[in-house]
């Protein structure tokens, strides 16, 4: 019953925003086929994903996912391990391209441009959709060079002073400046795990992306470092769109505004974080939230 109401409200919105009735009908069909519970649409999307399928060789890992990612919001993706949430995240900046056997079909649009369109270049895409990984992966270079790496390869800085400035602001935004400002020439690998992860966030920020993807960024960290990162994510929301994959439900609850629940490669339910955690509509979501599996 809820589903029907929900979908009709979506159609109403589509009609209101003037995308036309045909589009609305099509959306209706699509969301029926994907079978996701909840509102996959948002008012002001940064990225829109339609009918996304991912295959590893013959094996299909992601089935027909439709999802919008809103601007200046944190969306978290949760689900049991192997549910495809990380795979989906890696589609958003085409990190899956680095895996030979991986094939992605469907549409992922950013600012109206399909990122899997042949004409689109992956280099500027990744410059505007940055990524932070599960394990902190600073380069075996100095802290300064770690941050400077992105701006340098993209040619973002005019001169050394400008680069210094970029490094400083990035580190400040990542909340790391005070801790490392006296040892910028030390190797990045010498920092603690939490610092390394913030260094990686600063490294992503340094190229001024619009979206930052985070793939279980705290799974290798202790609780204190995790708290710091979560705080940081909340601050970053103001300037960036953030999609975070996590297996810690509390983390999703703490940092995100929207939550998407994945199960066996399918997007089961998506909605406001509060709603997902307090009143899940799908049985599978409820079982996961209440800890029956995971």
């Amino acid at each position: 019953m809820d589903e029907v109401i929900n979908r009709s409200s979506t159609i109403a919105r589509e009609l209101k925003t003037g995308s036309g009735a045909e589009v609305g009908m099509q959306v209706l069909k699509e969301s029926q086929s994907s079978g996701t519970v909840g509102d996959i649409y948002v008012d002001d999307p940064r990225m829109t994903c339609r009918n996304v399928n991912v295959y590893y060789g013959d094996k299909q890992a992601i089935f027909d996912i439709d999802l919008d990612i809103a601007k200046h919001q944190v969306i978290s993706m949760i689900g049991p391990s192997g549910c495809g949430k990380s795979t989906f995240l890696r589609c958003l900046n085409r990190m899956n391209d680095t895996i030979d056997i991986c094939k992605v079909t469907g549409q992922i649009k950013m600012e109206g441009q399909d990122i899997y369109d042949g004409g689109l270049d992956v280099v500027p895409l990744r410059a505007s959709v940055g990524m932070v990984f599960q394990k902190p992966n600073p380069f075996p270079k100095s802290i300064y060079d770690n941050i400077g790496y992105g701006p340098r390869i993209h040619g973002l800085n005019d001169n050394k002073d400008h680069l210094d400035e970029i490094v400083e602001t990035s580190l400040k935004k990542a909340g790391l400046w005070e801790e490392v400002k006296d040892r910028l020439d030390h190797p990045g690998t010498g920092l603690s795990g939490g610092q390394q992860q913030r260094l990686c966030i600063a490294r992503a920020i340094a190229v001024s992306p619009e979206v930052i993807l985070m793939d279980e960024p705290c799974s290798a960290l202790d609780p204190i470092a995790t708290a710091k990162i979560e705080e940081l994510i909340d601050e970053l929301r103001e300037n960036y769109t953030i999609a975070i994959v996590t297996h810690a439900m509390q983390q999703a609850a703490r940092v995100s505004q929207r939550t998407a629940y994945f199960h066996l490669g399918k997007l089961i339910e998506v909605g406001e974080t509060d709603q997902i955690f307090t009143a899940p509509r799908h049985r599978l979501t409820e079982d996961y939230i209440t800890g029956r599996f995971g």
Binding site: P124, A127, H154, L156, S208
Partner: peptide, 16 residues
Amino acid sequence: QQQQHERSMSRVEKGL
């Protein structure tokens, strides 16, 4: 932030 992003992107495009 938006402006800065646009500036960056235009530089990225130039270097491509």
